[in-house]
Write a protein that binds this DNA or RNA. Structure first.
Lengths: 234, 234
DNA sequence: CGATTGCTTGATACCTCTCAACCCAGGTGG
DNA sequence: CCACCTGGGTTGAGAGGTATCAAGCAATCG
């Protein structure tokens, strides 16, 4: 069921990051950079496709911000099934945890570039800088909000509904043209929506027959009838 | 499908609350109460069963903390279906939103007592008091964490799995004895798990036949075989 | 006592999963 | 150049599980 067996252990290319926090959007705009902020311990990291960023159970020592590429957060059930909780794209911050360890693992969908911040340092900075606190809070609320929306999708009954909602979500990243560039495989989509790869494939084919979309390329979806898709998404 | 048509408009019994924030757990322990904290604008509110606390789309002006009773956060789809996102019990804080309005509605499952905090005031206090910021962050992380767990449940395939997970979650509230007191109806459970009321009922009956649980009362579930239930929950 | 509400049970239809075959593009090596 | 292999995707047939529709049951309340 769940593919993605070869999640190799993380040993990415590290590189010190002396950028101020605002360069990666964790410091409020307009505030003068403090000494701590200027030499903030953000570390730029590169991950090749399918490399694991952190594992379920690892100590949750970092927050990550996506600079480029796509990341998936996923959980593996003990029978091998996989549930993808979220995809993170440029600008998203992930790695928030209530406890001391990650409760989910993160992997690179495409090869990608991240900036990692030590959690303790971020928290310490937030103690001194209320603006940073606000930024953190806002980033968390965005992540929270998306997870809640995802839960609503998973609760939906039909496959068509789920796929339509998925397309609607990614239509936002298509820069106005209705051409959605998929970074992930069908298996990723299936595990994200709680469906099987076959059902995803069949549903897309059906959408194509119904002239709702076109599939010029295996990783491209042209939205032809947004209204009908949105109606399906209800 | 979705019951709960009669969500009456909110007009609960208001009562000024001059309690310090720590009395309701939003101020860090040990810190001396400041002047603002002492007269914090928390308002105790009572809601009778099934009364709406706030509606989807209302301005998100308050955070709520549950003093007693159970609250459900739910979303109504335009075809009448209902998805319950979470149940909140004593001690839980809810009402977090990334935007200016609520994206979900909240209703009293049982008659319940809440403390409402004006969002702006909480945020203003948090600006002066980093400890409060930390508390807020922690409360949010807990809520976030539970929503993520719920998404994983909804992604699950079988009805038995979902119901077992639901029971496992509420077993924690049963004070050690395996006797789970259900505050909600079967319909609530169904809408929470993304199932129908009939399937929930059948699954519980099957569990009873398999000696996993006993149903002494319609609102009580005695867990007889926690190991087997946990195995089902995987 | 009848009406209502919440729940259970039954029969059937529908949808998705499962298993299997097939297709297609890309890469490799003879 | 072509045969072969591989990975990702599509398509098909059948089984299984859940939704749907309908009826029945028990407790509660006028």
């Amino acid at each position: 069921m769940a593919a993605q067996l070869a999640a190799s252990p993380p040993s990415p290319q590290f590189q010190l990051c002396a950028l101020p926090l605002d360069a990666v959007g964790l410091r409020p705009q307009g505030e003068p950079a403090r000494e701590e902020g200027l030499h903030a311990p953000g570390t730029v990291q590169h991950f090749v496709q399918d490399r694991q960023i952190y594992a379920d159970g690892d100590p949750a020592n970092h927050l990550y911000k996506v600079v480029s590429g796509v990341v998936r957060a996923c959980k593996f059930l003990n029978d091998g099934r996989r549930q993808i909780e979220a995809f993170y794209v440029e600008g998203d911050v992930f790695g928030f945890e209530a406890g001391a360890t990650y409760t989910i693992c993160a992997e690179a969908v495409t090869s990608c570039t991240l900036v990692a911040f030590r959690r303790k340092v971020v928290e310490a900075l937030a103690q001194k800088d209320n603006g940073l606190s606000a930024q953190l809070l806002a980033a968390m609320l965005r992540a929270f909000s998306r997870t809640r929306a995802h839960a609503l999708v998973l609760g939906r009954r039909g496959a068509a509904e789920k796929v339509a909602l998925f397309l609607a979500e990614w239509a936002g990243h298509s820069a106005g043209t209705g051409l959605v560039q998929l970074a992930m495989t069908r298996q990723d989509i299936a595990d994200f929506l709680g469906l099987t790869i076959e059902t995803v494939s069949r549903t897309l084919t059906q959408f194509e027959r119904d002239r709702l979309i076109a599939l010029p390329n295996i990783r491209q979806i042209q939205l032809c009838n947004r209204a009908a898709l949105n109606a399906l998404a209800a």
